[in-house]
Amino acid sequence: MEASALDRAQRGDAEAFRELTQPHERELLLHCYRMLGSLADAEDLLQDTLVAAWQGLPGFERRASLRTWLYRIATNRCLNALRDGRRRPREPVPPFPPPAPTRRGEVTWLQPYPDALLDGLPASAPGPEARLELKESVGLAFVAALQRMPPRQAATLILRDVLGYSGAETAELLGTTETAVKGALQRARAATPSRPAGSPEDEVVSRFADAFTRGDVEAVVALLTDDVWLSMPPAPHEYHGREAVREFLARSFRHAAGRGLTLTRADANGQPAFVADLDGPAGIIVLTPRGDLLAAIARFHLPPKWARSLSAYGNRSAAGTKPGRDGSA
């Protein structure tokens, strides 16, 4: 069936081309997201990949699988985009005077990836060389670490440890040598965060949602690890430790008081997440549990269209997250 569809597609049959590529689109989108860290950019690069594949299909010699050929195109399109210079988001103007940050983050273009887009993908990578499971390979810490690496180093790690291509296959995909792949892989693995320990996250996530919507600073802080990080892409402000996070939350909650803050569960990056609504969609909050506490809170300040889109992916409302208009539970 595939050979017949491929024959027709190479003769210019657009429907046959769609039949061939549609089953791979979701995994290619995720691949572009890992490379770029931005869902918006990944969607653009997926379309570029499909256009390039359609234009190049007559010359496809079938020496590799169609899937591998598509990954080659997607990887090179992403590398070209990174080499040409990524558009960095404009730093937003905060709605209230924030405290001095612990540091200014560099990966301000990072965006969350809705778990609903992971539906239908295999729980483990298809390649025999893969080392990372799906949930680990889409986690915020892992994707952020990829953004800090040289692009070809990040591509090597993804192709080898996430997708499971061999050293020889990865070298061919990247147009380099196996020796270069081995060296890049070693450096990339050294820069990759260790896998977080499993946690009984349901209780801590529910307690966070309840405390957050009530604007209870101390109740939220009680759920945090001593070394917690709060980040807010595309704003570069980051806060480290309970005291720094407490100060930021106190100002944030004063700003939101009486405005009917709600949270709707819509998990992202294999992690518990919420769409926040404050007189309209206000962004996405992604949590990183560690044991029975939270080690990181990422508050993504997204345009309303993104908040609505991501909210649509989630269909679970967190218990206790629908307060009254006065902010009470």
Rank of each mutant, 00 (worst) to 15 (best):
residue 165 Y to G: 01
residue 187 R to K: 03
residue 163 L to S: 07
residue 190 A to E: 08
residue 177 T to K: 07
residue 164 G to F: 10
residue 185 L to V: 03
residue 165 Y to K: 12
residue 175 G to A: 06
residue 167 G to K: 15
residue 154 A to C: 10
residue 154 A to R: 13
residue 191 A to W: 00
residue 180 A to Y: 11
residue 160 R to D: 03
residue 177 T to R: 00
residue 173 L to V: 13
residue 153 Q to K: 14
residue 155 A to F: 15
residue 165 Y to P: 04
residue 154 A to G: 06
residue 177 T to G: 01
residue 176 T to D: 01
residue 190 A to W: 06
residue 188 A to Q: 01
residue 188 A to L: 00
residue 183 G to I: 14
residue 158 I to D: 09
residue 181 V to S: 02
residue 162 V to K: 09
residue 180 A to T: 15
residue 169 E to G: 14
residue 175 G to H: 15
residue 186 Q to K: 13
residue 173 L to N: 09
residue 164 G to V: 10
residue 179 T to Y: 11
residue 162 V to G: 03
residue 175 G to M: 10
residue 188 A to W: 04
residue 180 A to V: 15
residue 188 A to T: 05
residue 189 R to G: 00
residue 180 A to M: 12
residue 176 T to E: 00
residue 189 R to K: 00
residue 167 G to N: 15
residue 177 T to H: 01
residue 186 Q to C: 05
residue 182 K to V: 08
residue 167 G to M: 15
residue 180 A to R: 11
residue 179 T to R: 13
residue 154 A to I: 05
residue 155 A to T: 13
residue 164 G to C: 10
residue 190 A to T: 12
residue 153 Q to T: 14
residue 185 L to Y: 08
residue 175 G to K: 06
residue 156 T to V: 01
residue 186 Q to W: 12
residue 186 Q to A: 11
residue 176 T to I: 00
residue 191 A to M: 06
residue 187 R to L: 06
residue 163 L to A: 10
residue 189 R to I: 00
residue 191 A to D: 01
residue 157 L to F: 09
residue 180 A to K: 13
residue 176 T to V: 03
residue 171 A to G: 00
residue 185 L to M: 02
residue 157 L to S: 14
residue 155 A to S: 07
residue 186 Q to H: 12
residue 158 I to E: 02
residue 187 R to I: 10
residue 184 A to T: 04
residue 161 D to L: 09
residue 191 A to N: 03
residue 177 T to L: 05
